[in-house]
C-alpha cells in the first residue's frame, strides 16, 4: 500500500469515529516509516474536515463529533511525542483560551466550539462555565494565548464579555490577544459595541473566524 492508501485509511478511521481503528492505523503508518506530522496533516486532519462538514450539514451531531475528537486526541497522544523526538514542533494552529462568562452556566455551545477548535488543530484551554474575568486573563498570560473566546447565552450575562475586554484594556493587555465572542444572546452589533475583534453566529463559523484572527495576530506581530 502506498502512502495515499494509508492516508485514506487514516482519514476514514476518523470519519468512522473509531478510536481503536484510528490508533491501529496510526501504528501501522508509523511502522511503515510515515512521518508523524504527515500522519496528522495528510491523514487525520482531512478526516476531521469531513467530520466538521458532516456536523455543519446535520448529518452527524455532537455525540459523533465528540467520538471523532476523542479518537483524534488519542492519536495525538501517540504522535506528538514522536514529533518532539524528531525536533519538530506540534502542528497547532494557535492557542485559544475558551469559556462561558461569569454568571452563565450554559455549556453545550461552548463544548461544541471546543471540539471544533481542537479538531481543527488549535490548542484549547477550556475554563468551563461561570468563568471569572481574571481566570480568562491569567490563563491567557500563562499559555501565551492567541485568542480569548467567550460565550454567553443569556441577555443578563452578556455584560461579562465586556468586563473581560475592559479589564484587558485596564491592564494594558488589550492588543496582546484577539478576543472573539459568541453565544445565543450575542450579535455582531454587540461585539462591535464592546470592542471585540470578532463574532460568529455558529461554532462552525467561529473556527473560520479564529483562523482569520490568528492570521491577523501573526501579521500584526511580524
Amino acid at each position: 500500500m502506498g502512502d495515499d492508501g494509508i492516508f485514506e485509511e487514516l482519514k476514514q478511521s476518523v470519519i468512522d469515529q473509531d478510536e481503536e481503528k484510528v490508533l491501529a492505523t496510526v501504528d501501522k503508518a508509523l511502522a511503515a516509516g510515515v512521518d508523524a506530522r504527515k500522519v496528522i496533516d495528510d491523514g487525520l486532519l482531512p478526516g476531521l474536515d469531513v467530520i466538521g462538514e458532516q456536523f455543519e450539514c446535520e448529518e452527524i451531531f455532537l455525540p459523533e463529533l465528540m467520538q471523532a475528537a476523542l479518537a483524534f486526541q488519542s492519536a495525538m497522544a501517540v504522535l506528538e511525542p514522536k514529533i518532539r523526538e524528531s525536533g519538530g514542533e506540534g502542528p497547532k494552529k494557535g492557542r485559544i483560551v475558551l469559556g462561558t462568562v461569569k454568571g452563565d452556566l450554559h455549556s453545550i455551545g461552548k463544548n461544541i466550539l471546543r471540539l471544533l477548535f481542537e479538531t481543527s488543530g488549535y490548542e484549547v484551554w477550556d475554563l468551563g462555565i461561570d468563568v471569572d474575568l481574571f481566570k480568562f486573563i491569567d490563563k491567557a498570560k500563562e499559555v501565551d494565548a492567541d485568542i480569548i473566546a467567550m460565550s454567553a447565552l443569556l441577555t443578563t450575562t452578556l455584560i461579562g464579555q465586556k468586563d473581560v475586554i475592559d479589564a484587558l484594556g485596564e491592564q494594558g493587555l488589550r492588543d496582546k490577544y484577539r478576543v472573539m465572542v459568541g453565544g445565543g444572546a450575542t450579535t455582531e452589533e454587540w461585539a462591535q459595541k464592546i470592542g471585540a475583534d470578532g463574532w460568529a453566529p455558529s461554532a462552525y463559523e467561529a473556527v473560520t473566524l479564529a483562523a482569520r484572527l490568528v492570521g491577523a495576530q501573526a501579521g500584526s506581530a511580524a
Partner: peptide, 12 residues
Amino acid sequence: PLFGGYAGGAEG
C-alpha cells in the same frame, strides 16, 4: 433538549 447537541437528531 438541543437538536444537534448531546441529544443528536429528531429521534434523540
